[in-house]
Computed example of a mutant assay.
Amino acid sequence: MPTASPSSDLFALQNSLASLSALLASLQGALHTAPESPRPPQLANPPNPLALLSDAAALLKAQTTKLSLLLLNKPFSVREVTHIVSTLSKSIIPALLSVVELLHPSTYTVAVNEHVRGTLGIISRELLRLLKCVPTVPGPDAPAVAEAAPLASTGVLWEQCDELVSVGEIGVRGVVDKGVRGYGELLDDAIAEIEEWDPDGESDEDEDEGGDNQKGEATVATPTASDEEALEKGVRSLRLSAPHALKARVLKFLRILRLFYPALRKRRIETYPNITRTSTKDDMLPPPQQVRRLDELVGFAKQFSEETDELAGALYAHESEEVESKLRALAVESKQCASLMETDWKGQEDEFCTWLRTWQDRVGGSLTI
């Protein structure tokens, strides 16, 4: 049987690269297209998209690892690289395109859909960069491959593929919980920065001698009623300047608002019916109102974090009216959020409702000092 010539091998490689690049362009286009209303499945038994996502991501990691090694080793193996590129074109990238269509937010939440889309966007960009390292001209005329180029892209691809495999393992609930935890950590960071900020620009020594004494208060992560009373007495006795008093009010409010995050995670997200890569068809049909409600709760977690940054910016700029306006807006939004959390996923009241009422009262009470 005659063997293929080097020129025909390179021609096959060029065609495979062109096909894969076109598929990746289609994937990027799908990722930037808003999800449409879910269409009836074209298959009688469509696959679990989280299982398809995990499997495709694991295969993608394996194939890109092989491709990177082939690019770095000499002599360059045209046929082996062509086989890898063809595998990506014929099975792995089409599978990821199917995931984009099947992983509809009406079932899997907007939070999961956006997370997967964002990760696939990084993967498609890095894979295109890696493909640019593939020589497509023969022998000595081929440009040298800088070792750092394929290694850098491969490292990013490994990380993002592992993330998608994890999505299938931890499921909808795990992805949502991870996101809410991240928003809570951002709010923690904002609180810590405000605690360290001196409205009057005084030195640490001046603060120790008669400033607003925020260092002692900074240790209060989850204030109790007695902590709040102590803070109020301290504010009165020290006769804080207007900027220091405003800072104290902001901190008091944000420390109470911060309690929302662990409560949401423990009482609502951890009790949400999970969908993972092993879920059956019946498990993957949560009521639409539950999915919308979970997305709304995640939206509040993100909104509180983002608006806290804006609040801090207004505080640092000494825009007291803007600070007051943002505090009132956050208080209104916290009430709306509390109304979403007041029943469990079956619509029943639980012991968490008592905590919610107390939390809401303290949010409102924290606006005055």
Score class of each variant (00 low, 15 high):
Asp188Arg: 09
Asp188Asn: 06
Asp188Glu: 04
Asp189Thr: 09
Ala190Ser: 05
Ala190Met: 10
Ala190Thr: 15
Ala190Tyr: 14
Ala190Cys: 08
Ala190Glu: 11
Ile191Ala: 04
Ile191Arg: 06
Ile191Met: 01
Ile191Lys: 04
Ile191Trp: 04
Ala192Ser: 14
Ala192His: 14
Ala192Lys: 14
Glu193Ala: 12
Glu193Leu: 15
Glu193Pro: 02
Ile194Cys: 01
Ile194Ser: 01
Ile194Asp: 02
Glu195Asp: 15
Glu195Ser: 13
Glu195Ile: 15
Glu196Met: 10
Trp197Asn: 02
Trp197Ala: 02
Trp197Ser: 05
Asp198Pro: 03
Asp198Arg: 12
Asp198Thr: 06
Asp198Gly: 03
Asp198Ala: 02
Pro199Met: 08
Asp200Thr: 11
Asp200Ser: 11
Gly201Trp: 09
Glu202His: 09
Glu202Cys: 01
Ser203Tyr: 13
Asp204Pro: 05
Asp204Ala: 08
Asp204Cys: 03
Asp204Tyr: 09
Glu205Pro: 04
Glu205Arg: 14
Glu207Arg: 15
Glu207Leu: 14
Glu207Asp: 13
Asp208Asn: 08
Asp208Leu: 13
Gly210Leu: 03
Gly210Met: 01
Gly210Ile: 02
Gly211Trp: 07
Gly211Leu: 02
Gly211His: 05
Asp212Cys: 07
Asp212Gln: 11
Asp212Phe: 12
Asp212Trp: 12
Asp212His: 13
Asn213Asp: 06
Asn213Ile: 00
Asn213Arg: 10
Asn213Gln: 07
Gln214Phe: 11
Gln214Arg: 12
Gln214Ala: 06
Lys215Arg: 13
Lys215Val: 13
Lys215Asp: 07
Gly216Ser: 06
Gly216Phe: 11
Gly216Asn: 10
Glu217Ile: 10
Glu217Gly: 03
Glu217Thr: 06
Glu217Val: 08
Thr219Trp: 15
Thr219Leu: 13
Val220Cys: 01
Val220Met: 04
Val220Gln: 03
Ala221Tyr: 03
Ala221Ile: 12
Thr222Val: 14
Thr222Ala: 09
Pro223Asn: 06
Pro223His: 05
Pro223Gly: 03
Thr224Phe: 08
Thr224Ser: 12
Thr224Ile: 07
Thr224Tyr: 08
Ala225Asn: 09
Ser226Tyr: 10
Ser226Arg: 15
Ser226Gln: 13
Ser226His: 10
Asp227Val: 06
Asp227Gln: 07
Glu228Tyr: 09
Glu229Gly: 01
Ala230Asp: 07
Ala230Ser: 04
Leu231Cys: 02
Leu231Glu: 07
Leu231Asp: 08
Leu231Asn: 08
Glu232Leu: 09
Glu232Asn: 07
Glu232Ser: 05
Lys233Leu: 08
Lys233Pro: 01
Gly234Thr: 12
Gly234Phe: 07
Gly234Glu: 07
Arg236Trp: 11
Arg236Ser: 03
Ser237Ala: 10
Ser237His: 05
Leu238Tyr: 05
Leu238Glu: 01
Leu238Lys: 11
Leu238Val: 02
Arg239Pro: 00
Arg239Tyr: 02
Leu240Gln: 03
Leu240Cys: 04
Ser241Phe: 00
Ser241Val: 02
Ala242Asn: 08
Ala242Arg: 13
Ala242Tyr: 10
Ala242Lys: 13
Pro243Thr: 03
Pro243Gln: 00
His244Leu: 09
His244Cys: 10
His244Pro: 00
Ala245Asn: 00
